[in-house]
Design a protein around this nucleic acid. Sequence first.
DNA 1: GATGAATGAGTCTTCATTCAT
DNA 2: CATGAATGAAGACTCATTCAT
Lengths: 213, 213, 213, 213
Amino acid sequence: MPKKAKRKQRPEPRTPQQARSRRTRQIVLDAAVACFEAKGYDATTTAAIARKAGIAVGTLYGYFHDKRAILLELLEGTTKAIGDYVVQSLEPTLWRHADPRQSVRRLIDALFHIRTFNPGMQRILWERYFKDAEFRQAVQAIERRVRVALVDLFEALQADGRLRVTDTAAAAFVIYASIEWTASRLMLESGDTESDAAVEAASDMVSRFLFRD
Amino acid sequence: MPKKAKRKQRPEPRTPQQARSRRTRQIVLDAAVACFEAKGYDATTTAAIARKAGIAVGTLYGYFHDKRAILLELLEGTTKAIGDYVVQSLEPTLWRHADPRQSVRRLIDALFHIRTFNPGMQRILWERYFKDAEFRQAVQAIERRVRVALVDLFEALQADGRLRVTDTAAAAFVIYASIEWTASRLMLESGDTESDAAVEAASDMVSRFLFRD
Amino acid sequence: MPKKAKRKQRPEPRTPQQARSRRTRQIVLDAAVACFEAKGYDATTTAAIARKAGIAVGTLYGYFHDKRAILLELLEGTTKAIGDYVVQSLEPTLWRHADPRQSVRRLIDALFHIRTFNPGMQRILWERYFKDAEFRQAVQAIERRVRVALVDLFEALQADGRLRVTDTAAAAFVIYASIEWTASRLMLESGDTESDAAVEAASDMVSRFLFRD
Amino acid sequence: MPKKAKRKQRPEPRTPQQARSRRTRQIVLDAAVACFEAKGYDATTTAAIARKAGIAVGTLYGYFHDKRAILLELLEGTTKAIGDYVVQSLEPTLWRHADPRQSVRRLIDALFHIRTFNPGMQRILWERYFKDAEFRQAVQAIERRVRVALVDLFEALQADGRLRVTDTAAAAFVIYASIEWTASRLMLESGDTESDAAVEAASDMVSRFLFRD
DNA sequence: GATGAATGAGTCTTCATTCAT
DNA sequence: CATGAATGAAGACTCATTCAT
């Protein structure tokens, strides 16, 4: 009975307390990824997710408020993991005594590699990014975090006189956008060979942008 | 999704041969852009487009096979225009006797500027890009074209010994992706000041990547 | 696709401009009354109404925003008609030169009679009255109107020294409630003989309450 | 409406034989009243009742066949109590030597007072009255009882020559309906002052109806 | 050509009830 | 006896598309 006059505040979905619960929850998440990857978010019905998960629709709704909540949770996991990894890789102390070019290369390599995780999911994420404000904000929160880390790193390197760029904020933005998209596109479309060459090129581009020869 | 678009054999909808026809067609297209920009593609109903266009739904279907066809045509116009412009800007002869740095700067400037056209529409375009294979292909066709033009340019510059990069295909890909996304993100989110700084940074990045100091 | 993230403002349901439209609208209303009377409001599905009306669900939604709107419109007609009738019967000039007892009798008679119209509908109306605040308000608006008319009448009669009661507001309330419920119950349950006797008794009760012997 | 209550042969749910059982049963009943009052019958889920009662849904079903049974039991308690009280107040011997006007007043006063108990619950009761035949019958059984008591009382008073009305059955019906509804409405809507005035008016009305001045 | 009323399959979501643990 | 996860039928509502006028 959808859209009822007096809707009660949604009862918190089952919080996984028992092992079985947690497992079911994960099964739903996995099924959702599979469906989303196969058909896209909009074209995936909750019924399809449930079927794939081998449970009833109602069960699914016991764990998630709605379809969107499933994707939001998936997003959270994915972007959080990526963000954490990147921010940690940007820790200035790691860069201080290393060859910066090497570091750039390693970072980009890693970024590209990370994008390899459930690529279908990433397509969905982008798809939502342009449709759903809440989604966009979640992603942008991560991005801001990464950009801040980039700026910090750049300023540390700048203090050492090793940096060529002056407008660190703009550099951070451009680099972030460039790498993000290059990596995404690569993952969405191409094979390994192209990928390797692109990583190489991207590293060069960023290195030369940042550092003096 | 009512009456699943069964993609039956479609008798070509009326091809615009008369002036009035063409005008009506354009009115629909304009109305569609307005609606899509305002609410997004999915949330825009054909009825809304017809209302905005001041015609009946049925009439609309006289000009376009379905909702998707409208967007597809819109895409075609937009990307074709952008592609043409860029390809033309990449014409090697234009670069031969100019300061390459200046040229890069002008190109990027132009690219960014172009993105400023109906930004709402571009959001829709991206949104579809990830959802609709046919769309993706249409966009990618343009991209390929641009990439080929880039490669041609690079090889021309290479012959002159002015280029630093060797893997021109990879460079083309990376540069294209970087600029495309930087520009898109800028248009989607930021103000003019940030934009100017970003254009500057992007130009530097690409120039240093391509050319020796 | 119920409950979508970005819901557009509901497009005004088809306003009946053509004859056919108006007819269809009425067919829906009639079908709805039949269904509501037979199964009650909650147990009546929009699909059932459409089926009864011999149209598609979508068509129904072209004329009414939702199920509730249908009932609301039905309510409006019913209560408005009743209210108008009663208020008009209470016009003081009509009472001035008549035997008040006779007048009371006629009024009550009429009230009871009116309740005989689509009795099933009235059951629905009461059912909603206790569940739906908007409904309650609609009904109470009518009630207030009637009560005001009663008070006016009483005060006119009072000026003539013909009235026994002093607290006219309280009298109006009690009389209104008494007659309303007696009539409703009668209509809901009993046969004609009981009904006649009850009308008689109610008239006596009200007359003796209001007037000196 | 999930799994349409097919009213299968029901093995009597555990009859409360032990103290603990009876206590749990009562806890459920109390929780149900609270929920019903707060959100209405339909909008109250069995899960909500169970939560409020601090037990599991399954447990609840150990004590009651279904949601409806809970309300039915609640109804029974409420109406039985009211009925008992009224019937007892109508005991002819109590009226024989008292001032009838005083007695009427006391009775009505009491009736009104009783309606003050869990008013939310009464709203539910009325709501169901119009929706659920079984409910209606249960309520009507009580009403009949009260009406019989009224008739008995009236005939006793008639024998004493103190009564003005002749059709005692009709009088009983009308008076019962009038007071019931006046009291209900008062409880549902108004403040104390209005209430007092209404009690006064109602007493006058009934007294004058029944008795000669 | 235009109109716009009609169509109806398809979607999400709810919740009373059951039953394995 | 208690638990609470699982069930799945049912319902309101949408909207791309068609077609009689």
